[in-house]
Design a protein around this nucleic acid. Structure first.
Length: 423
RNA sequence: GGAGAAAUGGCAGAGUGGUCGAUUGCACUGGUCUUGAAAACCAGCGUACCGAGAGGUACCGGGGGUUCGAAUCCCUCUUUCUCCGCCA
């Protein structure tokens, strides 16, 4: 959520910034500011009445103490209409607050100055490309055929047990998953991120804190009986560890990581894109999260990008980095870098990581602040990124590393898999 | 799942209808004293919103109610603790 203060003071900057998303905000913002002005007026009136009520109440107490019962009763009588006014104003103020909030929720984050305008993924900038496409003599098999050939992943069994999008990993396929998780976690810990095992189910307040609610309600699995949500990413529980937190000093940097399964309903997806591991309802991911002083955010984002690059290079994957254009940048993010690996058999790029800075968009909702040297409370910045999401990494590894001898495991992963080849 | 107890400021812990936004202790910050430190003493020390400011309003686990007035009474939810049951 944007800060109302920012909209009051820098209305034009917000409107201009949101244009990069092709989001026309001026009408919405004018409406918000009108309601805000009305709110301030009513709120002031309400507080005046409340102050008057408080004053009378105190005097009644004083009169009773002095034994002046009659005068006290008289004073009581005059509060009646004041109380009506108070209740009426309170209703109006609350209604306005709700209206303003609902309007505020519709405003996405303002893109960073580096973000280029654009409508969709076709406008994303490729900022870097490393490695080159693997060449095959014959035809390369897609990963779902490899998975079945070596009995690594069983999609049909998953359908039987649960439904489409819930694969069952078996044998070396399961071991490869576990190896990747351990590898990613070890690398994150080496880079200074503290490992966490968070809950996989969160409450409504947490979903709201990181911005999944109310914007993307339909994306999450909802457990109605207990009013809880299955996490779509570890970002939600990890960032919410810091909900309602005041960090007592100005000099801080919290770096955390965690492996979790992620659950996404992916309502409306179908077709070729969902084949095999390309899009799942349940998948594994190691996430890195940072809570930073605003002055360190740019550097933190660069460090996270470098970390993900390091992982992909150790796995020997051909990858590229995109800076998303305004229109493709997620609702809550100010800037996002996507990482894509090249899938040799499918002959397309697969997104395997998304690294974003949110600035104060999440911390406003989270009430996550730090204390400045001048004893002021200021909002922290939050960032997060996948490091990495497993399924498409597995897809790329299987497809790119296929050979006559079988699937060759990258050097860096062998200590974790315990085998060098899948055959 | 059943029975009981509890939830107050960074922590501890008072407060059971009327100057209580909240006694006190510890911690913390500044000052005096000291060669320095400790001790002692003095002062300060929650958050949010509105306001140019003076100041005002709200907040004693969350929500609702009673009352002129609620930390205090009532309802409800949540969490924690103790006992019983069940269980990886």
């Amino acid at each position: 959520m944007l800060e109302i203060q920012r909209i009051r003071n820098n209305k034009e900057e917000v409107i201009e910034g949101l244009k990069k998303r092709h989001f026309e905000a001026s009408e919405l913002i004018d409406l918000i500011l009108t309601k805000d002005q009305e709110w301030r007026k009513q709120k002031g009136a309400l507080e005046d009445v409340a102050a008057e009520m408080n004053r009378i109440s105190k005097s009644i107490g004083e009169l009773f103490r002095q034994g002046k019962k009659d005068e006290a009763e008289q004073a009581k009588a005059q509060t009646g209409s004041l109380k009506d006014d108070e209740n009426k104003l309170k209703e109006q103020v609350q209604a306005l607050e709700q209206e303003i909030n609902e309007l505020m929720y519709q405003l996405p984050n303002v893109p960073n100055e580096l973000v280029k305008p654009g409508k969709s993924e076709v406008d994303n900038e490729i900022v870097e490309e490393q490695g080159e496409a693997v060449q095959f003599d014959g035809k390369a098999l897609p990963h779902w055929e490899i998975a079945s050939k070596y009995d690594l992943i069983d999609f049909e069994l998953g359908v039987k047990v649960t439904g489409a999008g819930f694969p069952v990993y078996k044998g070396k396929g399961a071991r490869l998953q576990r190896a990747l998780i351990s590898f990613f976690l070890d690398e994150a810990v080496k880079a200074g991120y503290q490992e966490h095992i968070p809950p996989l189910v969160v409450n409504e307040a947490s979903g709201f804190g990181t911005g999944q609610l109310p914007d993307k309600e339909g994306q999450m699995y909802y457990i109605g009986e207990d009013d809880l949500y299955l996490i779509p990413t570890a970002e939600v529980p990890l960032t919410n560890l810091f909900r309602n937190t005041l960090i007592p000093q100005e000099d801080f940097s919290h770096k955390l990581c965690g492996y979790t399964p992620c659950f996404r309903r992916e309502a409306g997806s179908y077709g070729k894109d969902v084949r095999g591991l390309n899009r799942l309802h349940q998948f594994d991911k190691v996430e890195i999260v940072r809570i930073e002083h605003p002055k360190n955010t740019a550097r933190a984002l660069d460090e996270m990008v470098d970390h993900v690059k390091g992982l992909l290079e150790k796995l020997g994957l051909h990858y590229r980095i995109l800076r998303l254009c305004g229109g493709d940048t997620g609702f809550a993010a100010a800037m996002t870098y996507d990482f894509e690996v090249y899938s040799a058999a499918q002959e397309k790029w697969l997104e395997v990581s998304s690294v974003s800075r949110f600035d104060t968009f999440q911390s406003t909702r989270l009430k996550l602040r730090y204390k400045t040297a001048e004893k002021k409370n200021e909002l922290c910045h939050t960032l997060n990124g996948s490091a990495l999401a497993l399924p498409r990494i597995v897809a790329a590894l299987l497809e790119n590393n296929q050979s006559e001898k079988g699937i060759l495991i990258p050097e860096a992963l062998i200590p974790y898999t315990g085998f060098e080849v899948i055959d």
